[in-house]
Simulated assay, not measured.
Amino acid sequence: MDDEPLTEWAERRDAKIGRLRALPLLPGDGPRAGHVNPEAPRLIQRWNGHAWEPHAFAANLAEARRILHPAAHEAPAQAPVPTPNPLRAGTGKHRKPQTPGPNER
């Protein structure tokens, strides 16, 4: 058999420690998919290497996503982009040359 070494398995298992997941808090065997009831409260659980343990509580799906993926919800720091002005005078070949007015000759 091709068994992997125990050290590789332990590294793979330890890489998952600290992973978070959100479970909807619904009575009974209701739907467990997160998108089905976005307003339901969520329990955030953390993997400790052996079992999922309670970590936090979120009021709805949007708040749970902010907890699970904080980097995705931060606004990127960018310099302000200048607004384009498509009606400015240009020199492109699609522009017609400006004809002088009657008082400019």
Rank of each mutant, 00 (worst) to 15 (best):
A59W: 05
E11L: 13
A40I: 08
L87Q: 12
G30P: 10
R32I: 03
R65F: 00
E39H: 11
A62P: 00
R12T: 11
P27V: 00
A58H: 10
R42Q: 11
A15F: 11
A89Q: 06
A71F: 01
A72Y: 01
R12V: 01
L43G: 08
R66S: 02
Q45T: 04
T91L: 05
A56R: 00
L87K: 09
H55R: 01
G92D: 14
D29I: 12
I17Y: 03
L87S: 11
R19H: 11
A71H: 01
L68G: 03
P86G: 07
K16P: 01
Q45D: 08
E63Y: 01
A89H: 11
A71C: 00
L23D: 12
I17T: 11
K93G: 03
P31H: 05
A79Q: 15
R88T: 01
K96H: 10
P97L: 13
W47P: 02
R46L: 13
A72Q: 15
A72R: 12
A77C: 10
K93M: 04
N60A: 01
A40H: 07
I44Q: 04
P54K: 04
A62H: 09
T83I: 14
R66P: 04
L26C: 09
E53D: 12
L68T: 00
A56N: 01
E39W: 07
R88Y: 04
I17N: 00
K96C: 08
P38Q: 05
W52V: 02
L87W: 15
Q98S: 08
P41D: 13
E63N: 06
G30L: 04
P41C: 09
H55Q: 10
Q98I: 15
N60R: 05
A72C: 01
R95A: 13
Q78W: 03
A62T: 12
P97H: 06
L87E: 14
A22T: 04
A79M: 03
P38I: 00
K16A: 10
L25D: 07
A22N: 00
R46T: 03
G28Q: 08
R19E: 10
R66H: 06
L87T: 15
E39I: 12
P38G: 10
L23F: 14
E39A: 11
A51R: 12
L20P: 10
D14W: 09
G18I: 11
T83L: 15
R88W: 05
F57W: 03
H55S: 14
R65N: 15
K16Q: 14
L61F: 11
A58D: 06
R42W: 02
P70E: 15
A72I: 01
Q45M: 08
R95V: 15
G90I: 11
P27D: 13
P31F: 06
L25C: 05
Q45G: 07
P76G: 02
N60L: 03
P86I: 09
H35E: 07
R12N: 12
L20A: 07
P38C: 10
N37P: 02
P84E: 14
H73M: 08
P76T: 04
G30T: 09
A72L: 02
A64E: 00
P84N: 08
G90A: 14
F57L: 03
P27M: 06
L43H: 08
Q78I: 01
K96Y: 10
K96D: 03
H94E: 15
